[in-house]
Amino acid sequence: MNSFLSTSTSSSIALGFSGNGSGRPLVKPVFFEIHCPVKEYQTKPFANIQNYSYTKEENEELSDTIWHVKLTLCDDDNDLNRIESIDYLKSEIDHRLDISFLAKLFIDINELDKAKDLYNLIVKDLPSDHCDRVSIKTNIGTIHFGNGQYCDALKYCRQALKINRLLMPKDFITLSMILNNIGHAYNKLGNYLESIEYHKKALQIQKKFLIKNNLGYATTCKHLGVVYDCLSKHKLALTYLEQAKKILEKYLPEIHPHIGDTFNNIGEIYLSNNRSNEARINLEKSLEIRLESLPTDHPILSVSYSNLGYAHDRLGNSQKALEYHNKSLNICLKSMSKNHPDLATTYNNIAQCYNELDNFTSALFFS
């Protein structure tokens, strides 16, 4: 925004100006909430003009009909990582300002219901032989991943694969991505050998037709690392994940969520290998990146807190472990359905912590 904004410190006044959209059905009202950490900056890039305002009571934040956008003020000198991430996001958005990209953005910030509504809107008028059905099926599968519905995720990924082979047989980038997603679904369902098969198919395509060491290749390496960790092949798993991290750090901003994911995966391998302190270091780095780049109630943060709980439990600090598992639970309750498998796991982790602290009443309550 390269212009002056008229704002208010009163949320009710701001909402009054935004309106409820009833007078303009094709336009969506947007309510902006701007966080200004002024203590971090030498100068204030805003001024209170209440005494000069025509309407002094304005003191120049929601409803279902208004979009709520939260912004954080950035400074060129103090927020280099954030600015680098913003520039990367801008490059991703260029030439993709359509409703499908908005739906994908909703997936990234865990607004899964909104994403699904948009995809249903798109697909309603889409011809059955339209190539966009491939990405829509793939992304609906991603929504089911987020909801812990792995069988449904696999179903939509297989549908995407069928359409891709029919309509876009030479689109190897999309093909490798779909194969990766199918492999990921099999991993979540505990079918590790099938998972490896699909990930290696994706890897072969990427090596043969695509530029090696690109982001898709890194994603495949990361997924293979996770599966091999599940099979207790920790050394091989770590090799794949370190390779993925090296590529991601080359092409992505320092605080990109994908890099945070990789640090988390490496931490999980160290946990599996009983190297708890190394696990803690990588998991703390992952949490730091995720807190910088994701909404505070994003479900992936519950994984970070949960894993740090495991690490501190292994290090003999049950009280600290309990604190992390409780943080994980708070996010799960906000962002997941009541029947999500991760929620049951979190309750069990808390019960184990209470049991180790000899608080058997609380342990029984969470069991």
Results as ranks from 00 to 15, higher is better:
190 G>M: 05
147 N>P: 03
239 T>K: 15
51 N>L: 15
17 F>K: 01
192 Y>E: 08
200 K>Q: 15
45 P>D: 14
202 A>N: 11
231 L>T: 04
310 Y>Q: 09
269 I>L: 07
256 H>S: 05
131 C>K: 15
309 G>K: 04
80 L>P: 06
114 K>E: 11
3 S>T: 14
337 S>C: 10
105 L>V: 06
21 G>S: 06
145 F>V: 03
257 P>Q: 02
78 N>L: 12
311 A>C: 04
236 L>P: 03
319 Q>E: 14
47 A>F: 14
115 A>W: 01
236 L>G: 06
113 D>R: 12
295 P>S: 08
316 G>D: 14
127 P>V: 04
50 Q>M: 14
152 D>N: 06
233 K>V: 10
346 T>A: 04
323 E>N: 13
77 D>I: 09
117 D>C: 09
60 E>G: 10
19 G>V: 03
188 K>V: 02
49 I>V: 15
137 K>N: 05
219 T>Q: 13
145 F>H: 10
201 K>A: 12
348 N>P: 07
352 Q>T: 09
117 D>Y: 10
266 I>G: 03
207 K>Q: 15
82 R>D: 11
312 H>Q: 14
301 L>C: 02
349 N>H: 06
57 E>W: 05
32 F>K: 01
323 E>A: 05
288 E>M: 14
37 P>Q: 01
90 K>E: 12
245 K>V: 01
102 L>D: 03
220 T>S: 10
180 N>S: 09
297 D>S: 01
96 R>N: 10
127 P>E: 10
245 K>W: 08
19 G>Y: 03
313 D>G: 13
298 H>R: 00
217 Y>H: 13
223 H>M: 13
79 D>M: 11
